[in-house]
Design a binder for these strands. Structure first.
Length: 264
DNA sequence: GCGACAG
DNA sequence: ATCTTGTCGC
């Protein structure tokens, strides 16, 4: 059993981590948020990057999760893992980690290789309680995690320039687009993430620290892993994979229910 | 109280 | 997130 599998099993088996009441979940978030640490991330020393994502059925009765590991130098997929399960926590904006972490952890537990850093589809510190899903996974595993989201939940920001690589800071506060968030950041407002243009002329992504990375390194990693498309490649691959996996599982189930005795 | 609300 | 057809642009 790999190192990551052991950590995953330990975390999933501990009922303390999985409240079923949203009220409890918020209290747990506040406690866990104190354990988030920021560390320098040297992107040049990174080799394997894991992208994580979950796909849900419309009726909310099934889900699939995927972890895709890519080599940052060749941009080739090194390994991927998928699982299927059922949602164990409702979708509540702000409590995303409780819904998304269990399936993601299960997928991670199936990996043979050990990624250097993890990229997830959602926020880290750019969260009302500074505890988005990237922080959640990071703290549970005590591993480096970066959050990269496609829309905003919380924070003030201005619009970055149109060129790839251009970015503006996100600062704490109710979600709002402001004329100049750099000025706010310079006046000492809490910086919680960055709005990053990964592709010229295309809507930016929202990058934030999950755990054991810094914002500069997180930004560089997301930009490097998005050479062609808006969403970082490992997350794009994970997104496609878990979507396909969920449909395959559904097709299997329907075939089973249509003719369990075999129709021939 | 009201609106907003990652995936 | 999911469901879903066509359509606009490089």
């Amino acid at each position: 059993m790999s190192e990551i599998s052991e950590r995953v099993a330990r975390v999933l088996d501990d009922p303390e981590h999985w409240p079923d009441d949203p009220k409890e979940a918020v209290a747990l978030q506040r406690r866990m948020a104190d354990r988030v640490r920021e560390e320098p991330l040297d992107v040049d020393s990174v080799r394997l990057v894991a992208g994580l994502d979950v796909s849900y059925a419309k009726d909310n009765t099934a889900l699939s999760a995927a972890a895709v590991v890519m080599d940052i130098r060749t941009m080739e997929v090194v390994e991927s893992a998928t699982i299927s399960s059922e949602p164990s926590f409702p979708y509540i904006s702000g409590l995303f980690g409780f819904r998304e972490s269990p399936p993601v952890l299960e997928a991670l537990g199936r990996l043979k290789v050990t990624p250097d850093v993890y990229l997830c589809d959602g926020f880290g510190l750019a969260h009302p309680r500074r505890f988005g899903v990237a922080c959640h996974l990071g703290v549970l595993l005590d591993l480096p995690v970066v959050g990269s989201a496609k829309s905003v939940l919380y924070g003030k920001h201005s619009v970055p320039g149109n060129e790839r690589g251009s970015w503006t800071p996100m600062v704490a506060g109710r979600s709002e687009v402001v004329p100049d968030s750099r000025a706010l950041a310079e006046r000492g407002s809490e910086v919680i993430g960055r709005v990053l243009r990964t592709r010229e002329g295309v809507k930016p992504v929202y990058v934030s620290v999950g755990h054991r990375v810094d914002l500069e390194g997180a930004t560089e990693l997301v930009l490097r892993m998005s050479p062609k498309y808006r969403v970082p490649e490992p997350v794009r691959h994970a997104d496609r994979l878990c979507g396909e996996h969920r449909k395959a599982v559904l097709a299997e189930k329907e075939a089973r229910e249509a003719g369990p005795a075999g129709d021939r």
